[in-house]
Nucleic acid binder design. Structure first.
Lengths: 119, 119
DNA sequence: CGACTATATCGATGGTTGTCAATGTACTAT
DNA sequence: ATAGTACATTGACAACCATCGATATAGTCG
């Protein structure tokens, strides 16, 4: 359905745009749920490493073939983590030929960063 | 032991001070582990609400008695979440009489925020 | 002392999650 | 067409986690 699509497209930015910084005023339950979902997507060592490799790559984009080797986990597990990051709105996927490229969503991390800042 | 004590005192700030922003260069495995541990402590709706209530309170400090009611969870669960936040270095506990007060650790959220920012 | 209050800890339980091996899909090249 | 490569999906399993009821600890007030 349409709403579901929107949610899966921009959840991080939605979660971050929803509200003032954490320290400004108490979060409502829905706000806390959204924010927790975004943070949970980030709260895994493998996903953090994947994201940092993608972000530090040329054009903030990396091929899966360059992501499978550096981490010490199997290829299906890498695929799983990339899916989680995609559904959370941190990266987007584009297929070119046989290869799949994952690209950082501009502003996604920044939006989350702004929610955590206290000032 | 001494090292363990240090780690449990300032883990968030350690994790954040360790390295350049996520997007600058790939995280090493230990860096990713530390950062994931901090994020995991935050990645729960109940803990986010607790933290936001504490942060928005007078002096960034709140009594447990004011934290048990607003959330719809039992008192032992609140106690559990406050322990997680404490061990992660986001808050500190001080007992005054019968009451326990939890206070935001200055700079803890900001340190984490800086790791996520892209610029 | 004994009753009461505030908070922490314990043990159990149901749900979630990271990981893998096996398999599926889709594209490429010979 | 056949084989090979790149990646995704499925199913299973073990580890982890949020929550609760029961109980323990510790402080306060009679």
């Amino acid at each position: 359905m349409y709403y579901r699509t929107m949610v899966t497209l921009l959840p991080v930015i939605d979660a971050a745009a929803c509200c003032a910084p954490l320290a400004r005023e108490p979060l409502t339950q829905p706000q806390a749920d959204d924010l927790a979902r975004s943070l949970k997507a980030l709260a895994d060592p493998a996903r953090l490493r994947l994201l940092s490799i993608i972000a530090a790559s040329e054009g903030s984009e990396a091929c899966v073939c360059d992501l499978t080797e550096p981490l010490n986990i199997g290829q299906p597990t890498v695929s799983h983590h990339l899916r989680v990051l995609t559904e959370a709105g941190f990266v987007t996927r584009s297929k070119r030929g046989t290869w799949a490229y994952y690209k950082l969503v501009p502003g996604a991390l920044d939006a989350l960063s702004r929610v955590l800042v206290s000032a």
